[in-house]
Design a protein around this nucleic acid. Structure first.
Lengths: 329, 329
DNA sequence: TGATATATACTCTCGTTGAGCATATGTTAT
DNA sequence: ATAACATATGCTCAACGAGAGTATATATCA
């Protein structure tokens, strides 16, 4: 079953307003990696993703997004990919118009932000602190999430349902025997939402139902408006899956870079460490990069060769196959 | 780059009608596999995919699709997944209203169709005859597509561009040294579209531009209205990718089945043969199925054990990892 | 000069995967 | 009845790739 739109991910809400037409919004997850940290462009005091109306003047959704982003932020968008279309939930705005949100993932390099719309770059682990396993599982997993999820699992009467809940939590968060799977970003967020460990979950509902408010006091991660955090989770999940078989990482790198910089970028996105020798072996044997001839001695240590991305591989292999190792440390 | 919405996949078309609001359509790719053939539900004399307006009465897009499909066709929808949202091209209908199409993939089992809307099941290789490689590359690849694509590659003056075109065609269709990749359904369709080897490509344009009409005479595959064939290609591609790491095949199988039936189903979807012993090894070592205790002797030969899908694996492993081998024969 | 940090290279083992072969147990034709 | 055949089921082997560890080279810094 598709994790998005799973039947129990949102409380049922019968639409009441009569259809006055539909408006389409574009929502963008714009990602950059700066000094080893994955970052996302935000607006509204870092509580929202950039979004705007889809204007019919553009010949496609994608070109519409491109034009709009580049006008608003002057970022050159390297790679763009559609994420998902949302139309559920309390999206009826003040006008009574229903809004469909079409979300996109865009990769770029961080630039000084322009004043308009108070756009700011912010590290994406501010919103998902439990997703950063580069130095092992973060403490809040054990301190906050595990108890909260345990409480959620116990909050149901049926014995079998309890076990199912516990199993689901363990599988998604790597408790007990289960190993951590960095791609399940969205499913984890939706579980936390369902368990009401996320402020967004209790926002609209008028404090009915069985929420465990105890855990809500120290709720993890920075919240966002509407379902923007969910959209961000979708984008992170997609990107983490994509870097494994498609050379999109290079859209986030400067023109020339060292292999360690590239590795740090992959680690930042995947949220876990990578075995250095294996990483280099895979990069080189796939001929993804070529030496520039120059070296860099930024970090203090033996100078590292500088490389650049071989754009030709996009034509040679297209999607066919390009693997990056994202595995245990 | 996302193959959908690639900048050159459609001729530029400036929107002229003033925005009168936007309508949202749902388009469904409903798939079943019957007697070893992948089939798709069609309407309008098999020239269209089922589609209808998104009604705001539903609490989500997905539940809207479910309700609508089950009302129209009385099919129980097992697995549903969003495919893509289209808003480009000449989607301005007679009313001048712009239409956004949100497409979904649904898996089911073929049922006798009900009269309404002249719904009919049709083999999907009727629309994409070049995608069926179960008995090796189909003859039309060499007889029709290769010459047509060669002509398209030669139709450009620049030497470098010619080579790029030839390489792209070879990579996608497995010419020369390249091997066939069954997942590139959409990219192949878009290349044929770009090369104007598909009737949909020359439909709206008033016979200008450099089309090679010679090849158009024996254009391969059954055409559809609007971009429905493109949507179908998207669905096939998604499904071919998905069966490799997620046990969705079972949504297309009857309750009990033999391993060979299961294999034939996978082969039908993937469009290529599968190594039998390896297939069985993978299925069994992953404990995806359990014996029913009964046997089937339909085909004449040693009776085969009947199996059923272990639905528990969905809870145990969720998305984590389930591999089906789709490789050479 | 030595300590340290990084870059770069090599080796080894294990599991997976692709592929071929052998055997078991039915049905169908002669 | 028997041979031929078709399918089911099980086993083996070689090649490859992934994970993990170790060793050496070359710079900076105290």
């Amino acid at each position: 079953m598709d994790p998005l739109d799973s039947p129990n991910s949102r409380p049922a809400l019968a639409a009441q307003s009569s259809p006055q037409g539909i408006a389409a919004d574009l929502v963008a997850v714009l990602v950059a990696v700066t000094s080893g940290e994955p970052r996302v462009l935000t607006i509204q005091d870092q509580r929202a993703l950039p979004s705007g109306p889809f204007e019919l003047a553009h010949r496609s959704l994608q070109s519409g997004l491109r034009a709009w982003v580049e006008r608003q932020t002057r970022l050159p968008l390297g790679y763009v990919e559609q994420l998902y279309t949302f139309a559920d939930r309390d999206r009826a705005g003040a006008t009574g118009q229903h809004v469909i949100s079409i979300s996109y993932l865009g990769l770029t390099r961080e630039q000084p932000t322009f004043g308009e719309h108070e756009a700011r770059w912010r590290g994406w682990y501010d919103y998902f602190p439990w997703e950063d396993h580069r130095d092992g599982p973060p403490p809040l997993m054990e301190k906050t999430l595990q108890p909260g999820l345990k409480a959620w699992a116990s909050a149901v009467s049926d014995r079998t349902a309890q076990r199912a809940r516990r199993q689901r939590a363990a599988m998604l968060f790597g408790f007990e025997e289960h190993s951590w799977n960095e791609e399940l970003v969205l499913q984890r967020y939706e579980l936390l939402y369902e368990a009401r460990l996320i402020p967004e979950a209790t926002r609209g509902s008028s404090s009915t139902s069985t929420s465990n408010h105890a855990a809500l006091s120290n709720t993890p991660g920075h919240a966002m408006i509407l379902d923007h955090r969910r959209i961000l989770a979708t984008g992170i999940a997609r990107l983490r899956a994509k870097i494994k078989y498609h050379p999109v990482v290079f859209e986030l790198m400067p023109d020339t870079f060292t292999l360690l910089q590239l590795q740090r970028c992959v680690e930042a996105l995947a949220g876990r460490q990578v075995h250095k020798p294996n990483f280099r072996r895979l990069i080189e044997q796939q001929e993804l990069v070529e030496e520039t001839g120059e070296t860099s001695q930024d970090t203090g240590g033996r100078p590292a060769k500088l490389f650049r991305f071989r754009r030709a591989v996009l034509a040679e292999r297209a999607i066919a196959g390009t693997k990056l190792p994202v595995s245990g440390a």
